[in-house]
């Protein structure tokens, strides 16, 4: 092993604590302020915005040199959207969209 076990344990501990701090900070800093109007506003409108950002982030490494870049992604996302609007069944939309994407990868 390239690193001493006790050093690796410390390393993991530091990384785990740092990650936990980023997740726990708002709960500690804004303790008991969950009903503040600004927090309620953010609780409602931040999630939809972040969801779209996470979606866009998935495609940040899209290969733009390819012939018709983003075609497989676009068609598969459209499949997900249409199926979800029609059947309202998340697993069906996600499964079919992924299958569509995998088929277009091998094609």
């Amino acid at each position: 092993m390239p690193v001493e076990p006790h050093h690796l344990l410390l390393f993991i501990l530091v990384m785990a604590v740092a990650t936990f701090i980023t997740r726990a900070a708002p709960f500690v800093i804004l303790k008991n302020r969950g009903d503040h109007p600004v927090i309620e506003y953010l609780g409602t409108y931040l999630p939809p915005a972040i969801m779209l950002l996470l979606l866009i982030y998935c495609f940040k490494d899209l290969d733009t040199n390819k012939h018709l870049p983003g075609l497989a992604e676009g068609v598969s996302l459209a499949t997900v959207t249409v199926l979800h609007l029609v059947f309202k069944h998340p697993l069906l939309s996600i499964g079919a969209g992924t299958a569509c994407y995998m088929l277009m990868q091998t094609a």
């Binding site: 740092a18 990650t19 708002p26 969950g34 972040i50």
Partner: peptide, 22 residues
Amino acid sequence: VGVTTLLLNSRHIFYGLSMLSR
């Protein structure tokens, strides 16, 4: 290690922010 992890995961602060009431 600590500083890089804090920076890399700092987006999680905003997740907690919108989960306070939940």
